[in-house]
Simulated assay, not measured.
Amino acid sequence: MDFFDYLKQKEREFLDQINSSNLKSKVEPQMQTLSDLISSSINKTWLSKISLFSDPAVTIGPENGILTCPKTKDFYSHWRRRIGEETYLGEWHLIDQDCIDRFADATGDKQWIHVDPVRAKTESPFKSTVAHGFLVLSLLPELCDVTRSQASLYPESKLIVNAGLNRVVFPHPVKVNSEIRARMKLKSIRPFKRSVEIVNDISIELKNSTRIACVVESVLRIYF
Score class of each variant (00 low, 15 high):
126 F>T: 05
146 V>H: 07
162 N>A: 06
138 S>E: 02
43 N>D: 13
79 W>N: 02
163 A>V: 04
39 S>K: 14
156 E>D: 14
137 L>W: 04
15 L>G: 00
81 R>W: 07
157 S>Y: 00
105 D>H: 06
222 I>C: 03
188 S>P: 04
185 K>S: 10
124 S>L: 02
10 K>C: 07
83 I>K: 11
24 K>I: 11
82 R>P: 03
70 P>M: 08
142 E>M: 13
20 S>M: 14
102 R>P: 01
170 F>S: 02
215 V>N: 06
202 I>H: 02
102 R>L: 12
114 H>W: 05
103 F>G: 03
26 K>M: 11
162 N>G: 05
186 L>F: 01
203 S>Q: 14
190 R>Q: 15
60 I>Y: 15
10 K>Y: 09
108 G>E: 05
177 N>I: 01
109 D>K: 00
59 T>K: 00
93 H>I: 03
33 T>W: 10
17 Q>I: 14
167 R>N: 13
204 I>W: 00
193 K>V: 08
222 I>T: 01
57 A>M: 13
207 K>P: 01
2 D>Q: 00
208 N>Y: 10
135 L>V: 01
43 N>S: 12
6 Y>S: 09
116 D>I: 04
195 S>F: 05
114 H>V: 06
13 E>F: 07
115 V>E: 01
153 L>A: 10
35 S>W: 05
159 L>G: 02
130 V>M: 00
153 L>P: 04
10 K>D: 09
95 I>S: 03
196 V>G: 04
71 K>M: 09
142 E>R: 13
112 W>R: 00
63 E>L: 14
86 E>G: 03
218 S>F: 12
87 T>I: 15
166 N>R: 15
112 W>D: 00
146 V>I: 15
208 N>E: 13
94 L>G: 01
8 K>S: 08
49 K>S: 15
107 T>M: 03
21 S>E: 12
10 K>V: 12
80 R>F: 13
82 R>V: 04
40 S>Y: 10
31 M>K: 13
213 A>Y: 06
156 E>C: 06
72 T>E: 08
79 W>H: 04
208 N>R: 08
22 N>W: 14
194 R>H: 14
168 V>N: 01
171 P>T: 01
84 G>S: 06
66 I>C: 04
156 E>N: 09
77 S>E: 15
33 T>E: 15
61 G>K: 08
176 V>E: 06
163 A>K: 14
157 S>M: 10
147 T>W: 06
189 I>D: 06
74 D>F: 07
178 S>K: 05
150 Q>I: 09
164 G>M: 02
191 P>K: 07
146 V>E: 07
121 K>Y: 09
73 K>A: 11
18 I>L: 13
32 Q>I: 15
167 R>L: 10
